[in-house]
């Protein structure tokens, strides 16, 4: 080894300053290309897959701990849980029957109004593997990726409401940005008065903001915010947040509205990824409207032609 020949405390090779210049330039170039172009996405995907085994090893103690905890839950606890779940199932079953008839009725009414039907979106259950390493970005990694046909932009929900949105898809995992992240905004509607607005993640506390609303806006503490469904990503009517405080500042023309998310974004193992085929849905809607219009025009023409036929 060359270490043995020369005194070991001298650093060989290029000087630290040269190295610093080389590596700084390299990382600046990487940052510029990553933020402006998307050349590096495949590289990132490949490297993430390579890091996957390390990820699994790091997660294993926690998974093992959970599994052991599950194994030693007492029979009594399990029995209690089964009882509660059975009661819930009966309760939900009754509600479901009502829902079925309501849905049919709603579809019927919508066809009468010539509005498009609300399509139900298939969902798949994904498990949260771990939360992001950066405490200031609200992101989680779930165990479904390209292999499970997850696409970036799909909505992620739980039983109570919206959790967030898939922002980055890797081959076997994907990154979900929570609705409290600064980067995520959702089109919402106040349930009480159908007022439309946009909610932005706060970023630090686990809350969302409603900026850009005038100081005299009709939003009260306790109002429930639901998705409006205009964006085509989230189906309409999903719970998003409940308003916790409305403040008006004399110096600002806008109200400061803070809301707490309904979905248990902090304490979850499993979430639902809604596979919204948004582009197709929009295309279908447009086609339906167009075909309806065409039909009307044809009908009109027929009528007029009949009239003209009848006259002579």
């Amino acid at each position: 080894m060359d270490q043995q020949q020369a005194p070991r405390f001298f650093i060989h090779g290029p000087s630290p300053f040269t190295r610093l210049i080389v590596f700084s330039t390299l990382s600046l170039a990487l940052m510029a290309s990553d933020s402006k172009f998307s050349y590096l996405t495949p590289v990132r995907e490949a490297l993430t897959v390579m890091l996957q085994p390390l990820q699994v090893v790091a997660n294993s103690p926690f998974v093992l701990f959970n599994n052991i905890g599950n194994y030693f839950t007492s029979q009594q606890a399990l029995r209690n849980e089964v009882e509660v779940l059975k009661k819930q199932a009966i309760f939900h079953g009754v509600q479901l029957q009502a829902l079925e008839s309501l849905k049919n009725e709603n579809d019927h009414l919508r066809t009468l109004m010539e509005a498009t039907k609300v399509s139900s979106q298939p969902a798949r259950l994904a498990e949260i593997m771990y939360t992001g390493r950066d405490p200031f970005s609200h992101k989680v990694i779930v165990n479904m990726g390209e292999a499970n046909h997850v696409l970036a932009g799909q909505a992620v929900v739980d039983a109570a409401g919206v959790v967030g949105q898939v922002t980055r898809v890797f081959p076997y995992t994907s990154e979900v940005t929570l609705l409290t992240d600064k980067e995520l905004s959702i089109l919402i509607q106040v349930e009480r008065n159908a007022l439309r607005a946009i909610s932005f993640g706060h970023g630090r506390d686990n809350t969302v903001n409603l900026p850009y609303l005038p100081a005299n806006v009709d939003i009260k503490k306790g109002d429930k915010l639901v998705t409006s469904g205009i964006d085509g990503i989230y189906p309409s009517g999903l719970g998003v947040a409940i308003v916790t405080s409305v403040k008006t500042n004399v110096s600002s023309p806008f109200a400061q509205i803070v809301a707490a998310p309904i979905a248990g974004i902090q304490n979850h193992r499993q979430v639902l990824i809604l596979s919204s085929d948004t582009t197709n849905l929009v295309a279908k809607d447009i086609q339906q409207v167009l075909s309806a219009d065409a039909k009307k025009q044809l009908d009109k023409k027929e009528k007029t032609s009949r009239r003209s036929d009848a006259k002579p």
């Binding site: 190295r19 990382s27 600046l28 990487l30 940052m31 990553d34 933020s35 590096l40 990132r44 990154e175």
Partner: peptide, 16 residues
């Protein structure tokens, strides 16, 4: 890669 940040952010900080 792990944190999903912009490529080169942590690298630059570590190198400096």
């Amino acid at each position: 890669l792990i944190s999903g940040d912009l490529f080169g952010q942590n690298a630059l900080a570590y190198a400096l």
